[in-house]
């Protein structure tokens, strides 16, 4: 029988659909009987969704300005043909 503490430990896996079928069923069984855990799961899910709508990855305008400045400068020295050296290619070590 799944206890509340154990459920709290795997709550994110449940929310994200990352549990095995057996595990998921035991969470669902527990949730049917335990209103505290229903509250917890609901609140954890709401907390997670807050981040989706939030500008959690906000960057200071000054940082963007500094990058734009460097990019503008570098663009003015950009060669007409690509550098034959393919590095860095982040796809190559996939």
């Amino acid at each position: 029988m799944l206890m509340c503490r154990e459920l709290a430990g795997i709550a994110s896996d449940y929310i994200d659909g990352e549990l095995s079928t057996g595990r998921r069923l035991s969470v669902q069984m527990h949730l049917m009987m335990c209103r505290h855990c229903r509250s917890f799961i609901g609140n954890l899910r709401a907390s997670t969704e807050l981040l989706r709508g939030h500008s959690s990855a906000r960057v200071e305008p000054a940082v963007i300005d500094r990058i734009n400045h460097r990019v503008t400068e570098a663009l003015s020295h950009r060669p007409e043909t690509p550098d034959p050296d393919p590095d860095p290619d982040p796809d190559k070590d996939r």
Partner: peptide, 27 residues
């Protein structure tokens, strides 16, 4: 969070409020 459970594994201090309103409302 760990400290909010009894040794039996049940909640000692369960969540008091439900805040699963839509995220937009909260924000």
């Amino acid at each position: 969070l760990e400290s909010r459970f009894k040794t039996s594994g049940r909640w000692a201090t369960p969540p008091k409020l439900r805040f699963d309103e839509s995220a937009d409302v909260l924000l």
